[in-house]
Amino acid sequence: MQSLDIISVNLWQILISLANLTILFLLLKKFLYKPVTKMLEARRAEIDSQYSDAQNAKQSAEAKDAELTERLVGAKAEAESIINEAADIAKARGDKIVEDARATADGIRRQAEEDARLERKRMNETIKEEIVEVSTALAEKMLEREVNADDHKALIDDFIDKIGEN
């Protein structure tokens, strides 16, 4: 078996090795770089989608949080307004009760005054009557004469009225 000289330039061998390198370049591009790059792209896309998902989730959580806070604030305000309203109502009712009570008391007092006045009037009447009777009887007894009772009575009334006025 023959062997080549240690340095021997051969045009065809050079061309073949040039073609070999080109072929290997194409092979590597097709079988190593293309699938790996595709996979890296897919990974990047997945990571991006996950990021955007997380972003969306965060945004929705924030929105929900804001909504809840708003609702809480609203509820607080509502509670306050309800309390205020209740307090107002209670105050109004209390006022009304006091008013009623005062009115009732006034009524009672007025009634009592009326009663007292009527009583006094009746007492006066009674006293007048008694005095009339007493005086009539006294006069009958004293005069013992036939005097027209009606005239008498008028006379005495007049007299007593004068007394009363005095």
């Binding site: 080549l4 340095i7 021997s8 330039v9 051969n10 061998q13 050079i14 061309l15 073949i16 090795s17 040039l18 073609a19 070999n20 390198l21």
Partner: peptide, 8 residues
Amino acid sequence: DINIVGGW
């Protein structure tokens, strides 16, 4: 081999 490297 010089031919191989020369081709590259």
